[in-house]
Write a protein that binds this DNA or RNA. Sequence first.
RNA 1: GCGGGUGUAACUCAGUGGUAGAGUGCAACCUUGCCAAGGUUGAUGUCGAGAGUUCGAAUCUCUUCACCCGCUCCA
Length: 513
Amino acid sequence: MAEKAETEGVSNMVAMDELVALCKRRGFIFPASEIYGGINGFWDFGPLGVLLKNNLRDRWWNDMVVCPPIGPDGDPLQIVGVDTAIIQNPKAWEASGHVAGFSDPMVDCKETKLRYRQDHLIAIIDERNDQIFAFYAEALEGKAALKKLKKMAGTDDLEKLKSVPFTKIAPADYARVVGPDTEKKGTLTEPKQFNLMFKTYVGATATEEDKAYLRPETAQGIFLSYKNVVDNMRVRVPFGIAQVGKAFRNEVTPRNFIFRSREFEQMEMEWFCHPDEAKKWLDFWKEQRVGWWRSVGVASGNLIFRQHDQDELSHYAKAGLGTVDIEYRFPFTAPGYGELEGIAHRCDFDLTAHQQHSKTKLEYFDDSVQPPRRFMPHVIEPASGLTRGVLVLLAEAYTADPSRPSKMYMKFKPSMAPVKAAVLPLVNKDGLPEIAQKLYYEMRTQFVTEYDTKGNIGKRYARHDEIGTPFCVTVDTDTPNDHAATIRFRDTMAQERVALDKISEFVRKSLKE
RNA sequence: GCGGGUGUAACUCAGUGGUAGAGUGCAACCUUGCCAAGGUUGAUGUCGAGAGUUCGAAUCUCUUCACCCGCUCCA
């Protein structure tokens, strides 16, 4: 990957295996259940990883709920937070479309070993000899497809061919089907169901009637609590409800470290607004969110917007203004990009669905305008992966530097860094530890600070480079006399001498940037 | 799920049937007085797991698990 990235002119891109190794070695992220051989698609956050994740989460929560942005009208937006149950009434997932839509029947080709989504295929039926050709919808337009059709049909006359969705073909007829990438008949297997929702059982008896699901997205919990929030919290449309929490998906193929795992964490905010204002808010949140990612230290050049094509839109977004993704240039996608956050116009899909299924009125009555109006709010949803965000921060921070002993350092924005400062006595004697410890006791009450006396000073700097500590405070032999210590900056390795009683303030200021 | 690859110490890896190794890291002490310096000492492995072949398996066979790459999937 690193080589590929370099040839494409992408500089400073870390190879994933190096990043994964660092994450393990320095306590960011471990394979889950490793002593039992691991478990596919699950990862544990180690001591540093959880600090990093919490920093990102807290920042999001602060910028969404505690201190929401100023809106287009110049007033602060109104956003409240919730923390809903991971397991809800299973009917909620029927209403949301996940029970039906969260499973994609797939067919495999025994000949070519390729796999196809059944609903992505088109069947061309040759009525004269009962042959059926399966094609990828988009591949049908090519000349090669035409050529293949003519060849297989044994004639140039294609008038007799009929096209139907492949889902209409009964598996019993698959023996007559020629797969998309082969010329043989009968190589496709029966469709297999891939249900991406985790099932569980509520109650100790665990019968089919007790079946429930682990949420595949946190958003539904917000829609389910929407009525309670509106009824009890004096919120007025437009307003938002935010939530951070775990979600679970039985991904077909968990891949790329924590990028696609089966248990992950989402940061989602549902913004409820009048249908006529959806466009305005979609544009607002789009800019707001990409700006936010920049503010936590992601370089603009590694972020792009990508508008979803009509046919890839989620079931809830088909009718609306679409979905735009904020994508990041991950090491494994470079020079391309991978999804980090989706900003979707969910229309009134969810509230309407829950209103129907639950028979509970969810429409909003707005009497702040003349004449008063009743409507189902539309939803603009900025939904990002916290877990993916952590991966972005890690990939973004990894900075090669052959000139320093560690050969690299983690260039976290100081406010995101797991450890903000380290207090290091230059040598572990001559009264230095006592002074350093006193300083450490003061600093640790304000931000995550480590105190380290082990090994020579170079080794300690190197270790803190690897975990991305932005400031190392070194108490040296002059300190007892001048009551000052040096602050060593991670990114430049430069040093600045600062009075002991000003050091906390110095670090605190730097963290606000 | 399919195909290919990998799996040996915390990390990187050597070890092709005969007593499990190196470097780094880690721990202790000494030395050291600002960038992984030096010295002494020390700990760590069911060689991913299970079964088989063999007098004997890290090594050969089978099964399984995990990770990586490709396909597929990714609300």
